[in-house]
């Protein structure tokens, strides 16, 4: 596991995603390129409508019609997903890459205890017995400092706070060994105190488990806290890319400067 820090997990080149057809077609993602390395956090920053979420869903292969990925290459662990059979892309989801969302309460199944969701996910990707899967689930939760073992596994999403749910979502995302985590506004729906917990947890998984994170956010505070490198997105294009210190100290693009200036 160790020693692969800095390895390129995800490399996206000239990705273009379009919604709709003909005259009403909208280019949501317009030829963007980015990469995520193991143990590093790349922030994709933009305002709503900039196409950052569409970019994330494109990488996951979750763009529903009438949207479609029209061009570009998506290399995951060196394999171009778009040139492989769809089945392979589907198999990667959960196993090699996983995604967490803004609203953790909605992302967990409300009628199943969280333990069952964790165990089912583990067993879908690994050949283990139920008892082994349970042990793996508990270990994963322990690492995220979610104690309580079996008792926690029996809980339902509605019995837990939003912050707990989001941490469980992160555990669930990584439980089957995914090394690439796409986090779409993971703290936006949460209170400030809880937001800090989630940021800390994301920092931990990238440091201790060498997970590479593509962090999608509109919040420059979150970027300043967490990111190693920054991609600034606007109207489907990446207008600036650089190491986080460079972007904050010496923004090159007008729009980046505007964003930095607009902070309250």
């Amino acid at each position: 596991m160790k020693g692969e820090r800095g390895r390129e997990l995800l490399s996206v080149r000239d990705l273009t995603t379009v919604f709709g057809r003909g005259d009403s077609a909208v280019v949501a993602v317009d030829g963007i390129s980015l990469s995520v390395r193991a143990g590093r956090i790349a922030a994709l920053v933009g305002e709503s409508g900039s196409g950052k979420s569409a970019a994330a869903l494109s990488v996951m292969g979750l763009i529903d019609p009438p949207g479609r990925v029209e061009a570009g290459e998506i290399f995951l662990n060196g394999r171009d997903l778009r040139r492989r059979p769809l089945r392979e892309w589907n198999a990667c989801r959960g196993r090699d890459m996983a995604m967490i969302f803004q609203d953790p309460m909605n992302a967990l199944n409300p009628v199943l205890p969280i333990g069952r969701q964790l165990i089912e996910t583990i067993r879908r990707h690994r050949r283990v017995s139920g008892a082994e899967a349970r042990a793996i689930a508990i270990a994963q939760l322990e690492r995220a400092e979610l104690h309580g073992g079996d008792r926690l596994l029996r809980k339902y999403a509605f019995e837990l706070s939003g912050g707990m749910c989001q941490r469980i979502m992160i555990a669930l995302a990584l439980v089957s060994g995914a090394k690439l985590l796409i986090a779409d506004e993971p703290t936006t729906a949460l209170d400030v105190g809880v937001q800090a917990q989630i940021l800390r947890e994301l920092d931990r998984v990238r440091r201790e488990e060498d997970v590479g994170i593509l962090l999608i956010t509109h919040d420059l505070g979150v970027v300043a806290e967490l990111a190693d490198e920054v991609y600034v997105m606007r109207s489907g294009r990446i207008v600036e890319h650089g190491e986080v210190f460079d972007v904050f100290d010496r923004p090159r693009h007008e729009y980046t400067r505007e964003l930095l200036d607009s902070r309250l």
Partner: peptide, 27 residues
């Protein structure tokens, strides 16, 4: 996508339906 109404947009809907899929994986 034209930038008119950002909230409640249809763009959010595919995301919602994709959530569970993304979490569970399709392997």
């Amino acid at each position: 996508f034209g930038g008119a109404a950002p909230k409640r947009s249809r763009a959010a809907k595919p995301a919602a339906s994709a959530r569970i899929e993304a979490q569970r994986g399709h392997g």
